[in-house]
Nucleic acid binder design. Structure first.
Lengths: 128, 128
DNA sequence: AAAAAAGTACGAACCAGTTCGTTGACAAAT
DNA sequence: ATTTGTCAACGAACTGGTTCGTACTTTTTT
């Protein structure tokens, strides 16, 4: 039952981002979105999306001629999965040191700091 | 002059971790360390470390018969580099959302939370 | 009806990273 | 002196991911 999220490759992640953003989309849609940022062929995107269905990263509705693809897993658990991977590979599994690194290496915006503070407070409460 | 850290691959990162941990080491040392965790051939490690020298991820002292390798970049900037990469690929560049995800998805230990709180306070002060 | 456009499927090439066997140099042990 | 062990170097195979050309099918346009 425990359906662990599958870790997407870079290309797959780029496509997932579009699907999360736009919702169910055709290859054409996704290709258009990705083309904004870089040169990429239509069939490249198509192939990638087909592979994603095979892997279980996406599902598709084939009832229309233009198949409609959906992300098979939500953004949050996917991010968590990628984060855990980096955690294990580069931070000896310590989330705190990852967070510290992230905080001290990136310019922080006050509103964001507040959001983090709120989460921190919440976690402290839950601890008791 | 700004010598941006090079992003290591997974295998390279595993080796860097050993070098950061143990300090300057021979291939034999690194191989021994990695063998603790998983099966890996000696020449595999050797080859990887040679490649790392080519790429500038490591340096080596060839004066002795057993060459001695050193990490060419420190741990912190390398972590920052990997973090930035993930940030761009999976969090639309928002460090805050990465931090939030990391905090809410991993069991937090009170001491770690305090460390994070301290950094947060420091950042807030610097803001002014 | 024919031509053009839009779509899927699929194989092939290619790239980076990983893995390891083999070779040859040198050193240590017998 | 010979054998045995340790080391670096290198090439080759393999893997996962990416990219795209080509072929084929179904619509849409003319």
């Amino acid at each position: 039952m425990s359906d662990d999220p599958i870790r997407p490759s870079d290309g797959e992640l780029a496509i997932l981002r579009v699907l999360w953003d736009r919702g169910p989309s055709t290859v054409r849609d996704v290709h258009a979105a990705l083309s904004e940022g870089r040169d990429i062929g239509y069939t490249t995107v198509l192939k990638l999306m087909q592979i994603m269905v095979d892997k279980g990263l996406a599902t598709r509705d084939e009832s229309a001629r233009s198949h409609v693809y959906r992300a098979a897993q939500a953004e949050a658990p996917t991010q968590a999965c990628l984060l855990r991977d980096l955690l294990d590979k580069a931070f000896e599994g310590s989330a705190a040191s990852l967070v510290l690194r992230a905080l001290s290496e990136t310019p922080a915006d006050p509103a964001e700091l507040e959001a983090i503070q709120a989460t921190l407070d919440r976690l402290r409460k839950e601890r008791r």
